[in-house]
Design a protein around this nucleic acid. Sequence first.
DNA 1: CAGTGGTCTAGACCACGTG
DNA 2: ACGTGGTCTAGACCACTGC
Lengths: 252, 252
Amino acid sequence: MIDDRPADAGRTGRPAVFSPLYQQIKDLLVQGLERGEWKPGELIPSEIELAARFQVSQGTVRKAVDELATEHLVVRRQGKGTFVATHHEARAQYRFLRVVPDEGEPLPAVSRFLECRRTRATADIARLLDLRTGDPLVYLRRLLTFDGTPIVLDDIWLPGATFKGLSAERLAEYKGPLYGLFETEFGTRMIRAEERIRAVAAEADVARLLQIAPGAPLLLVERVSYTYGERPVEVRRGLSVTTRHHYRNTLT
Amino acid sequence: MIDDRPADAGRTGRPAVFSPLYQQIKDLLVQGLERGEWKPGELIPSEIELAARFQVSQGTVRKAVDELATEHLVVRRQGKGTFVATHHEARAQYRFLRVVPDEGEPLPAVSRFLECRRTRATADIARLLDLRTGDPLVYLRRLLTFDGTPIVLDDIWLPGATFKGLSAERLAEYKGPLYGLFETEFGTRMIRAEERIRAVAAEADVARLLQIAPGAPLLLVERVSYTYGERPVEVRRGLSVTTRHHYRNTLT
DNA sequence: CAGTGGTCTAGACCACGTG
DNA sequence: ACGTGGTCTAGACCACTGC
């Protein structure tokens, strides 16, 4: 495992394209994650092992791993090692579920799938997913219920090529976060998302599903999710009833 | 300047309350910022100088300063030094201004103040600002206009004790971000905020100011801003028209 | 040129988890 | 007892800035 060493990584000479050593190590580690060399939840090699493999000091590996931990790609656990991050963890759950009750603990929302079918990309969905108009998609519609009350209606579009085997049956039987299913069954780990948030008036069909009056204000959250290498893997439009719930956000 | 050294910071013995050395250094630096030892925009001592002052290695100071930079309390500039962060910078502007046009660049929004008066804290505002009901407040109302169209109506409540001299005249003549004014004139630097976002229907008076129909959906952003030591210093309720604008957010 | 932060190394010891 | 990540040090060289 000596040949993994980046060309010209030593203290003499210069890499063809300059980038700090720890950055190059980080890139190699991300490539390993992307290739599935270490799967979500698994232990990656220790810092000492990685330092030996890449022929750099432990300190340099540490800086690379530190950045991966900051970006939530891996999780450090003192005394145990460094693990590949996974969506199957209470810790990571609420990073992407931002609609919560005004009062009390965010009870585990109950998810019910109303639709699951194949369709084809419209121009706008294709653009967001970096596909071509007419490319195959999987379309999902689900209702999130908090404490018995319907609160969020999500429309979700996924690239058909990646999510070929996704079925209503599989969704119905699956317990846990949707991104956990994507990660486990389709080898696609969501790591980042961009959202645009607006207020809109409820259409008649949506109002019926969310048990509110037509025209009532709803929070619209349009999300594009990305996996490794800034590759878009999901478009989601969520409509939320925000009379006793809100979207929480921290500005830092 | 030798006595600034934290008690028992050396490699032998144990601090009474355990915390890593770099954390203690970081805390001391935050206290310096809070005291105004170095003001926004100013240069703080170099790493070598701080290392000498606190009697620790440069590496330990570096880790402390790195964290301050991550939290946007300071800004590092290679070759020049480390500066206290300030709201008077294009870089920092859009960290707290999240409502932007759907298309095109976020043109500098024009701010117009509709009200500025002293009032007293209601129970809910008092709770959020860690005050008592009836304590003095300064209340502001302002309208943000993008490209000539009114888009955001902000109601702002500030602790009267801190913002004693704030006047309509001062607001009218001031150019630049509101948080820049707070920082320069009142020595209060906002560093973090928590927001709750909802969709609501426009009331008649708000609809008139925003030039929309009564009952139209509006985005409501309720913000509490904090300065050093998690001390709340502002409550803000912003109502936005989101037909051609949206609230942007990145989940990481 | 001198001074700053940025990178990299090598080695020490500590705290935590497991056997 | 051992291996992991966490902290700390000392010193080297690099890259950027400004005189």
